[in-house]
């Protein structure tokens, strides 16, 4: 990469109904992260602890699908403030493991977890207003907001993330060839 001449791009990331594996994989770009930081700065992200997305954020990267009310609020905040929104990982683009619960009605799931299943003492379904309510179904993020790009994989490899972001930063249509484009 050439020496940066422009203002650094603001990149915000979030993990919704995911496992943070994609964020972990992001860190697998290793020392290339330093190169990347010459071009970008992190905005709201688990990596920074900034609490709100800047209104002029350039890129939002979302890991995980949408399973509860809070996921919807967070996702919409990112969509509203980011010029480009990227889904990263299988959970974000097709729901992945969390959508297994879509095979059952939500009441059946909650009954199983809190009433009939073993393990919980009081058997009550939590109703604290602090807790986000689960949606009746889990959704990939593109079913809730407009998504501009997707980096598939569970998780995508550090190399795939690097290739994708460098393409994007260089103004190319991101492409992952054989070996980098994986859904598993």
């Amino acid at each position: 990469m050439d020496t940066p001449v422009k203002k650094k791009l603001k990149v915000a990331t979030a993990s919704l109904a995911g496992c943070f594996g994609c964020h972990t994989s992001f860190l697998d770009i290793d020392e290339r992260l330093l190169t990347l930081l010459e071009y970008i700065e992190f905005d709201r992200s688990p990596l920074t602890d900034i609490k709100e997305v800047s209104p002029d954020c350039d890129i939002g990267i979302i890991e995980g699908g949408v399973c509860n009310a809070e996921n919807v609020h967070v996702l919409r905040e990112y969509r509203k403030n980011c010029k480009v929104l990227i889904a990263i990982g299988a959970c974000a683009y097709n729901g992945n493991i969390p959508v297994y619960r879509n095979q059952f009605p939500l009441p059946v799931v909650l009954e199983e977890v809190y009433h009939t299943g073993p393990g919980l003492a009081n058997g009550l379904i939590p109703n604290d207003p602090e807790l986000p309510l689960p949606l009746n179904k889990v959704h990939p993020i593109h079913e809730v907001v407009k998504v501009d790009y997707t980096i598939p994989g569970c998780p995508p490899s550090g190399d795939a993330i690097w290739k994708f972001l460098t393409d994007l930063l260089a103004g190319r249509e991101p492409e992952l060839g054989h070996g980098l484009l994986r859904y598993d």
């Binding site: 919807v72 969509r79 909650l110 309510l133 009746n136 179904k137 079913e143 809730v144």
Partner: peptide, 21 residues
């Protein structure tokens, strides 16, 4: 803006019913 094809508030109805919230 893009909107979901489903009614978001209705998507919480089952959870509201189960929790009484």
């Amino acid at each position: 803006d893009f909107m979901p094809a489903f009614d978001l508030d209705m998507a919480l109805a089952e959870a509201r019913q189960m929790t009484g919230r």
